Amino acid sequence: KNKDTSENAFNKALDNYLKNDANIIATSEHYTNILVKQLSLPLKFYEWVLINFGVDSQITVRCFEDILGVRASIDLQLQETPNIEIPIGMNKHKFHATCNIFKIYCNAKNFYKPSHLNIISQCTSTEILAPLFKHYLPALFNLQITFELPMQIIEIINSTDNHYQSTFSKLNAKINRDRYILEEWNQTLHNAYLNNINNSTNAFQNYLREFIELC
């Protein structure tokens, strides 16, 4: 009960913060021609939430959505500026730390939802697309997994951001094969395949086509 009360309090606080945060990214927003979005809260907060509330809490899910939005905006900027390795507006440390927290969440559990396809359809990064199409979805639909987790965390020299990397290094083995979830994914994926999401990348279309052909 105390944990539920704490989580509710954090959810309310997060609501109030995000309402006033210009960096928050809606799941339907198009990311082209923008600077990289910044995480709404300090990196340590996302790590702390994962450790203290676990993979199944609502606040952890919401944290992942914020992280996913930022990771997608990084990917998009790198697509538009292929001559640079570090996104504009980020130093090397922050870039690696942001990518790390995304991978830590992905290694811990499948947080992807059908509603996230509009975001990831604009991406080309293997780190974003492969966990979904070659691990999570195959596991959900009892197909062969061809992308192994955990993803490797980049060690940041002279940083304290490395100490959580092994805490959730293995994907939660519990897979929710609820009929509603399967049907929602199946319908959303086939709609995306047949109707071609606006501004989707070739990489996304290839991953999607390969998965549909396996089903």
Results as ranks from 00 to 15, higher is better:
204 F>W: 03
150 P>Q: 09
47 E>P: 01
94 K>Q: 05
38 Q>W: 08
65 E>F: 00
111 F>D: 01
164 Y>C: 07
152 Q>D: 04
91 N>C: 10
41 L>D: 05
178 D>T: 05
38 Q>M: 13
75 D>G: 06
183 E>K: 13
6 S>T: 07
144 Q>L: 08
138 P>W: 00
144 Q>S: 11
201 T>W: 07
110 N>G: 13
180 Y>I: 10
152 Q>T: 10
7 E>Q: 08
16 N>L: 14
60 T>C: 10
214 L>S: 13
145 I>T: 14
157 I>P: 05
150 P>D: 11
5 T>M: 11
119 I>P: 00
8 N>D: 14
67 I>K: 00
85 E>D: 15
146 T>Y: 09
190 H>M: 12
101 I>Y: 01
210 E>F: 05
145 I>G: 13
87 P>G: 09
196 N>L: 06
160 T>V: 11
215 C>P: 02
101 I>G: 02
129 L>R: 06
48 W>V: 11
96 H>T: 01
208 L>C: 05
101 I>F: 01
171 L>W: 00
183 E>V: 09
168 F>V: 00
80 E>N: 09
66 D>N: 15
157 I>V: 11
17 Y>G: 05
20 N>D: 09
120 I>H: 04
133 F>D: 15
172 N>D: 06
47 E>Y: 10
169 S>M: 10
192 A>H: 15
154 I>W: 14
92 K>Q: 15
146 T>K: 05
10 F>L: 12
160 T>C: 09
145 I>N: 12
208 L>M: 12
148 E>P: 06
5 T>C: 08
155 E>D: 05
68 L>E: 04
114 P>K: 15
190 H>N: 12
92 K>G: 05
155 E>I: 10
78 L>M: 10
203 A>S: 13
122 Q>I: 04
111 F>P: 00
89 G>L: 12
114 P>N: 09
68 L>D: 06
41 L>G: 02
35 L>F: 07
112 Y>A: 13
153 I>T: 02
3 K>D: 15
138 P>A: 03
101 I>D: 02
214 L>I: 08
131 P>D: 02
193 Y>F: 14
136 Y>F: 15
143 L>T: 09
26 A>W: 00
66 D>C: 14
22 A>K: 14
172 N>V: 04
75 D>Y: 06
193 Y>N: 10
159 S>L: 08
214 L>E: 11
111 F>M: 04
75 D>N: 15
215 C>Y: 04
167 T>V: 06
121 S>H: 10
64 F>R: 14
16 N>G: 14
145 I>H: 07
181 I>Y: 04
110 N>Y: 01
93 H>D: 12
54 G>I: 00
173 A>H: 10
186 N>L: 14
196 N>C: 12
2 N>E: 15
6 S>G: 01
27 T>V: 14
160 T>Q: 10
